[in-house]
Design a protein around this nucleic acid. Sequence first.
DNA 1: CTGAAAGCGCTTACAG
DNA 2: CTGAAAGCGCTTACAG
Lengths: 349, 349
Amino acid sequence: MIRIMPNPPTSRDVARLAGVSQATVSYALTGRGTISAATRARVLQVAESVGYRPNLAARSMRTRRTGRLAVVSGPTLDHQLRVLAGAGEVATAAGYAVETRTVDGDVEERTARVRELAAAGQHEGVLTLVPVLADVLTDLGAAVADRAGESVVVAEATFDEHMRSAGDLADAGPVAVFVETLLAAGHRRFLHVAGPDQYVSARARRDAYLAAIDRAAADPATADVVSLGVVGGTWSPEDARLAVQALPDDAPPLAVVAANDLLAAGVLRGAAERGWSAPGDVVVTGWDAAAMGAYLTPSLTTVDVDFTEAGRRAMRRLVAAVRGEPAPRQDAAVQRIVWRESTGPLTVA
Amino acid sequence: MIRIMPNPPTSRDVARLAGVSQATVSYALTGRGTISAATRARVLQVAESVGYRPNLAARSMRTRRTGRLAVVSGPTLDHQLRVLAGAGEVATAAGYAVETRTVDGDVEERTARVRELAAAGQHEGVLTLVPVLADVLTDLGAAVADRAGESVVVAEATFDEHMRSAGDLADAGPVAVFVETLLAAGHRRFLHVAGPDQYVSARARRDAYLAAIDRAAADPATADVVSLGVVGGTWSPEDARLAVQALPDDAPPLAVVAANDLLAAGVLRGAAERGWSAPGDVVVTGWDAAAMGAYLTPSLTTVDVDFTEAGRRAMRRLVAAVRGEPAPRQDAAVQRIVWRESTGPLTVA
DNA sequence: CTGAAAGCGCTTACAG
DNA sequence: CTGAAAGCGCTTACAG
């Protein structure tokens, strides 16, 4: 295949046209050297007029920086597209190209793939949206020298459970609100349908559920609370449905805290199959504000998560890490409870 | 920030270690020159042992090929993550790095973004998953010379409505099956809730609906068919709900073909709000096999789409176009109807 | 079958 | 404040 085309202009072409040296063009564009305002203006004007675009490969070779970041996502959780969008926005604004890799399989396989990616050295940093084993993650506290040749690897959800803040995607704060509000509405019988243990968010929601139940039991006003336990452990709504099928006949009235909307839909379906009304016999909460949830009957109470913003934040952390800067603090909540019909009539603070 | 680290090995290092020239290393790795099997084996062994990885920036500068492709997605349609996964798989296997860009806004803005991306020359090809104006798309029939400096741009859904085949994501064949099967079950009153006109798939489904109704009207056995029209025109379930709200009281019994599952959920919700039973008074079909659809009551009849495979195919087309090869034919269906409760009891062929 | 040499387009000390 | 020159790590005619 022969491509007959004028080669795109180089910095050398711009230099000749502007009557300066190639070095001056570089200084004008990068803003690095010392250069007079007049010269710079002229160079930029010429560059603009000929449609000059720096050859990134050449720049990369010279600077020994690839200017590329990778984001690793899974193929299964659809909302990751929005996280990706937010991450891409920040990366592009920071001057990086962002590449997406999809990984599949269990946590060992995913971790292996991320490790290869980091070792390949094609990327200055890697952001993983899927759970991986903690040892591939870069120890940001360690000296930069210790990271010889490897990409910086940052996870969207950090595994340090003590660092959880309200600005974090894995913040399970809404669980306590769900339980407390339902307690106040008179509910005493609870069940949690959990997500996969590998997911920080799923673990956090489960732990928050258990803690909320413990607190309720310790409170004289709600000491008669009873938890029918924690079931599930996947993101599959079928497991949620089956869990409801497996409940004793006298389970209702029951309040179910599901780890996401899909599981909550499985709960509603299971309840309907048993002839239990919702929100009469069973109330249920979800998570993620899936678009369809608002159109179920009953519509699903859920947690609206700003996935795009979460993606931006995760990417800001990665960019900071790659540049050796301290991690930005960002504590404004990305999550907001949306009360709908599936929790029945309530008095919400 | 000072990075104290041994530089990663270069082809020169490998050459020295293997006792050959740098050219020989290159020939061994790319398999391009004439080189003895013994020498090649030795070079590859040395390269492997020192963990040599070619510097892609250097290679790119020399070959004048970036080795990068871009995929443009929107932030709103979640299933695009699966298309992305399939596209990425094929691109990676073909030796390309694939970058994701998210674009927002109306069709003009999206088209402008794709145009910039193509003009920037950082990518050998661009695959767009979102609808754009046809004139940014590369005319693959035209001589390569006409594409001077620009990336090849290919759309996941082609705008040439005549080229639609069963292997295409926009193939609307299932619509005819829906209408015909419901006619056979005795339904005579139909409604279509359409998606946005910009989307090839939405247009194809609407056209297929109208054609199926026309065919039914022309058939003496079903000449009493009546279409209550085409409503909607967005992907928002709220519009579907409102469309049902706006229907006359005597609309049922009614068969609704919705352009996707979310719209179908809106229809179900609207029907429930009017006290219409489903699938008694209203039957409805969706599209996309959204996970939650199987857990609605009634569960949603839909079209299961292999988005990952659709992504693979679209990327194969792009890779072929970038390499100047003819487009691969791929006609095996990626879509399959899943009959569920929302269409009521049926005799399905 | 193998090597010496040029050059892809940048950036950056360094000299002036 | 500006320019001449080197060099990043590859690939590829070309010579042997």
